[in-house]
């Protein structure tokens, strides 16, 4: 008498999902070890629907993804850490993380990362007297003039590294 064990394993179908919902592999193992055979058969060749679909099915979602919330252009987005207090008036404190999106066009009023004196600094970009300048949100830091407004010269061409799109602070 032979004892047949059947194992069924779901496989990813190589055909279009509409045609084949599942292909099952059936291992028929006899108790005489010598003639083990493995046969692969397509058990179902069409989509099987049984019972009522769960009413929650349409609402199944993953967890909230902070990346999705904070980053719209991953290839252009960098995270930097704040090391100074020059922007405390804008709610940016030492040790905060800033999300910097280089795809955003620097415009007056935006908080930007600028290249000044060989380092990176966070300031607000402004125009005053037809000149671009970087303004701290802390009276201890004087504004930094960066370049005159000239035709075709964008501030990002010379000094602006990226535009800050949000800040992250852990308490």
């Amino acid at each position: 008498m032979s004892n047949h064990t059947t194992t069924i394993k779901k496989q990813c179908s190589s055909n279009s999902p509409a045609d084949v919902d599942a292909v099952f592999s059936v291992n028929a193992i006899s108790n005489q070890g010598a003639d083990d055979t493995t046969t692969r058969v397509a058990v179902f060749s069409s989509t099987v629907r049984a019972g009522f679909p769960s009413p929650a099915e349409d609402y199944i979602e993953g967890m909230l993804d902070l990346n999705e919330h904070l980053i719209s252009h991953p290839a252009a987005t960098f995270i930097v850490r704040v090391a100074g207090d020059s922007m405390v008036g804008a709610g940016i404190y030492p040790n905060d993380l800033l999300v910097v999106d280089r795809s955003i066009r620097p415009a007056p009023g935006r908080i930007v990362i600028a290249m000044v004196a060989g380092g990176l600094t966070v300031k607000r970009l402004e125009i005053k007297n037809k000149r671009w300048r970087l303004v701290a949100a802390n009276p201890d830091y004087p504004p930094i003039e960066i370049s005159p407004i000239a035709d075709g010269v964008e501030p990002e061409d010379c000094t602006i590294w990226g535009v800050v799109s949000s800040t992250i602070r852990k308490f």
Partner: peptide, 13 residues
Amino acid sequence: RYTTSWRELPRVT
């Protein structure tokens, strides 16, 4: 490792 390590992020003043 500026872009892959939380402890090594670029610092801005």
